[in-house]
Design a protein around this nucleic acid. Sequence first.
DNA 1: GCTTGACCTTGCCCCTGGGGCAGGGTTGTT
DNA 2: AACAACCCTGCCCCAGGGGCAAGGTCAAGC
Lengths: 243, 243
Amino acid sequence: MITIGQLASFAGCTVKAVRTYHARGLLPEPPRDAAGYRRYDARSVVDLVRIVTLVRSGVPLAQVPAVLGAGGEEQQAAVERIDADLGRRIEDLRHRREQLRLLRAPDRLCLPERVVAYLERLRALGVAEAYVAVERDGWILAAAVAPASVGGWLPVKERLLDDPGYVEVLRGYAAVLDAAPDDPRLDALAAATAALVRRTPQEADPADVDLPRAVLDLLASCGTWSPAWAALGERVGRLLAER
Amino acid sequence: MITIGQLASFAGCTVKAVRTYHARGLLPEPPRDAAGYRRYDARSVVDLVRIVTLVRSGVPLAQVPAVLGAGGEEQQAAVERIDADLGRRIEDLRHRREQLRLLRAPDRLCLPERVVAYLERLRALGVAEAYVAVERDGWILAAAVAPASVGGWLPVKERLLDDPGYVEVLRGYAAVLDAAPDDPRLDALAAATAALVRRTPQEADPADVDLPRAVLDLLASCGTWSPAWAALGERVGRLLAER
DNA sequence: GCTTGACCTTGCCCCTGGGGCAGGGTTGTT
DNA sequence: AACAACCCTGCCCCAGGGGCAAGGTCAAGC
């Protein structure tokens, strides 16, 4: 007649684990002595060793009775199920680990290959890192809210980078990213933007048509992340409306 | 201005997850509208997409701020730690899965190779399966409470199987496993056991000497798992004491 | 105007496999 | 008589949410 502590140390588990197995009905509650202590016999040791062995083999507590109590076929089937489940969990962790490795480069975070290449091209043009970060966030947003449209917008933006006038304006936007809304540079930049828009063919983007209103609003709001940009947008709008 | 449901669907997670991230401080609470609904903007979408990406890559929620907020070096270190942890968990699951595969043969449950061989030899001698099961439990018990002694006992038991007289008595014990304590066969079996004990050299087992009292009692109690065996033990004791 | 269904809010309990602590009782040894 | 080492129950905690209750809100269709 041994105590719970001895039982646990024989079976190589903790006292808490033994009490958990009692509560789960995996191991029957033994009789108590006068002080209310649980008193175990040899059977309990054997039963507990079996349970501990199964648990350490990855059998979920809920499946332990099925594996211990069932005869050959049923047991076999239960073990196969548990084995398959372990395999799935291993695969899942492995997949997460691969994803994690892809995150090591911060740009790759959440973005398709081609967008990463586009951002790299921006950097090569000498655009400030802060502006690239804003563009990156914009693409993350676009990929989240309108994934089907990203493939259509990307070639347009790539072609724009071939236009020196566009790149000049873009550098201007990057320069005033943290500027105040009344920065003196904004007037010239707004005029340059308006001129650029006027000489750029304005075809309606077919990919945008189906987007719900909420998505369009979200995407539009990207242009106002910087107070200076918000002011710019307003001035450009006025200039374009003038003529 | 979008609602929590739209936000969640954009980021590819559940509404519940968004609220959990708020509660965990991973994503700031947005302003509420007149009805008390949370109203999100484009920034929230980008932030949430980042969080979801990290979580799906196996980053624990508690580590997400460290990975998102930290700059290069710190972030790198955090990712390395998480990667190492994922590796440990994968290894653990793989190890459990291997253990599980070893359990497919029920005899192997918790037992060293040589004990399995011994049990196989018992079976080959034509001993009833129920008896083999009792022996198996006895070995599980022994391996749990006195693992250092099993190596000493095993050769002794193996040698005993070479003695036809011992095997005969053993068959007798197997036959009365489920018998009543007053079964008529018990008298002859007790006499045969006593005779066997008398002609077997009784060396004290050196491995037993150091075992604590509780362990010895446990091991001794194996002999009384069957009521008939308990009665047999008593009768054999009386016969041996007689002369 | 009224209903219906979809959406939002908070709060609570559930899952795994125990860990850890509080507060109190029981042994066995000195 | 004190002390350490056990034992008891009951409670809260971990990750990452799932699911439900009970109630408030919004838009569409009749």
